[in-house]
Each structure stands twice: as C-alpha cells, then as structure tokens.
C-alpha cells in the first residue's frame, strides 16, 4: 500500500425524493489498499460504489478518483476502474470470449491488446478452456468469475466489488476470497462491499462501517475485531413443557455454568447468550440429560446487525474511538 489518496469522498449525500441513501459520508482510500464497505442491506454500500464509479449524481458532496470528480469526469474515471456489480450482468447470449471482447473494446483496447488481455485474465481465473461457452448457461460461480474477468480485462487501477460472494456456495466463495486477496497483494486498489462481517474483516486493510446511509466508523479490522466480542444466542427446544418448579431448577443449574451471560427459560425453550456456543451447548446437553429433559432441537443464532452496531458503537467509544453521526444514538 502507498500513501497516495486515490479515492476521496467528502460529505457525500444521495437523496431520492425524501429518502436518503447516503447522509454525508466522507472517506479516503489509499493506493494498493483493500477497503471494505461493511453494513447490512440498505446501508448505502451499493450507492457508495455507484458514486465512486460516477454512476449517480451526488445530491451534495463529491467523490474524487485520482483527483477527478467521479461524476463530472466519469468518462475518464471509468477508464481507470473495473466494477463487479452485485448481480451477474453480462450478455447471456454471447460467449465468455465475446463478452470480454465487447467490454475490452469499449474500454478502448485495440484488437490485439484485448485478445492478449482476455488470454491473461481467463488464465488467471481458470476460464481459458470455456471461453466459447455462453455466459447465460454458466453456473453462478463461473458467472462471478467472468464478471471479475470483465472488470479486469482493461487492467484497471481500482477494482470495485459489490457483494462479490453473495449467493455463492461456501467453496466457490472461499476461492473467490483467495483471488481477491491475491489481487490485493498484487497492488490493486480494491473497494469491497459486503454484508458478511468476516469477509470484510479478513480481506480488508481498513473497513468503513455504514448503517442507514451513515458512516458509523472507519478503522482497521483489528480494532473492529476487538470490539466485536459478541454473544451468540443458543436456543434449545425441549421435548416437553417445563412446569414452574422445573424451570426454576434448570435456571439455577445453568447459572452455575461459566460463560453464560443471559438465561431465559420459558415453556419448551431455553435461550442462552454466550460467547462460547460450542462448549456451552455441550455442557447444557449434559445437564438436561441428567435432569431427564429431552432435547428436540438446538439453534445457534448469530447476533443481528442491530446487536452488532449497538455493540460497535458502545465498544468503539469505550476504547476511545469516535463514532460518526450515529443512527443508533439513544438506542438501548
């Protein structure tokens, strides 16, 4: 990573009628950095990506890419960026080769150069043997690879990836993350939007946390990880209803187990909040067997985005960080 600022957003606002998609977001991205945009659906990640690509007119504020206004100079800005949109969006009736050729030519590459680039990117992405396949007939995983190849065909300085692993199976998503990390090591500046916390944390050099169009905070993943010591909810479905006495007894025995932060026993459900779900489930199973209470099912429920953001804000301010204008202010 170098310290040259390649993207700079200043007080970026995007309004559609009365609805605000972005409410004054500012950030800087340095050359060679993987910069994560993290947030739930509707946080403003895609709007931010589109603003960087000059694909929407900011209501207020600006985005500069290599010093150029991304909207007013969009033609020149787009020549230097590659975009992988959230959904597969190449031409289904054209082959992979024809799609890449079309995109490369639009980016201004001459015939020889575009052929050379197709060879390079298809080898890197393992597409060289299926270049004659029609895009519309590919699996989701291969479509994603072709989308990335299309974004790389003109060898851009900046790559914008909008939810690149959404909808992919675990293995394909994992391979794709490895490839993104490899691109990062090669010095590409990458903007990675994701609603998967682990994905953004593991791949990014820095993360911008968005919620309801507001910048919550921007920092290195290690800082965010320190704050993200969140409880998971373990919900145990019992085979029968507990009477008041039994419920009381179960509650008391559970209180004696270390690592359980909150206990709720009602009807046929025991719900626990813990940071160590695997260990706790094992101990609670033993306890219930000892008490002669059968277990029907167990769910481990990850924290909700609402929990995460509340925790982020509290935790970050707790270690001396400064949260931006917080949409959760006053909540909880």
């Amino acid at each position: 990573m170098n310290r040259e600022i390649v993207i700079e957003a200043e007080e970026l606002v995007k309004r559609y009628g009365k609805i605000y998609a972005l409410k004054g977001v500012s950030f800087k991205v340095y050359g060679g950095e993987i910069y994560g945009l993290l947030g739930p659906n509707g946080a403003g990640k895609t709007t931010t990506i589109r603003a960087i690509a000059g694909a929407l007119k900011p209501s207020q504020g600006y985005v500069r890419v290599f010093g150029l206004d991304s909207f007013r100079d969009k033609y020149h800005v787009r020549k230097r960026i590659g975009v992988v949109p959230e959904l597969p969006s190449l031409y289904p009736e054209l082959t992979i080769y024809e799609n890449l050729y079309f995109i490369g030519r639009i980016y201004g590459l001459n015939r020889d150069r575009v052929k050379e680039r197709i060879r390079v990117v298809s080898e890197r992405l393992g597409l060289e043997k299926i270049l004659h396949y029609k895009y519309g007939r590919l699996s989701k995983g291969f479509k994603r690879r072709v989308d990335i190849a299309a974004a790389l065909v003109h060898d851009p300085d900046i790559l914008l990836l909008d939810e690149p692993t959404t909808g992919l199976d675990v293995l394909v998503a994992s391979r794709l993350r490895e490839f993104i990390a490899e691109l990062g090591r090669m010095g590409k500046t990458i903007i990675l939007s994701s609603h998967y916390i682990d994905e953004a944390m593991n791949l990014s050099d820095r993360v911008l946390l968005l919620y309801n169009g507001v910048k919550i905070l921007e920092d290195q993943p290690e800082y965010l990880r320190r704050i993200l010591q969140l409880d998971k909810r373990v919900r145990i479905y019992l085979s029968r209803r507990l009477d008041a006495g039994e419920a009381n007894m179960v509650r008391k025995r559970l209180e004696g187990i270390d690592g359980i932060d909150k206990i709720d026993v009602r009807d046929r459900i025991v719900e626990l909040h813990t940071k160590k779900p695997v260990e706790i489930v094992r101990r609670v199973e033993d306890l219930l067997v000892e008490l002669g209470i059968g277990i029907k099912d167990i769910d481990v429920i990850p924290p909700s985005w609402e929990d995460i953001f509340r925790k982020f804000v509290e935790g970050y301010e707790g270690i001396g960080g400064k949260c931006g204008p917080c949409p959760l202010a006053g909540a909880g």
Partner: peptide, 8 residues
C-alpha cells in the same frame, strides 16, 4: 444497468 459502469 452494467452500462452505467462502462466509459460510454
């Protein structure tokens, strides 16, 4: 929608 991202 993808055309939005191309230098056109």
């Amino acid at each position: 929608q993808r055309i939005l991202f191309l230098p056109l």
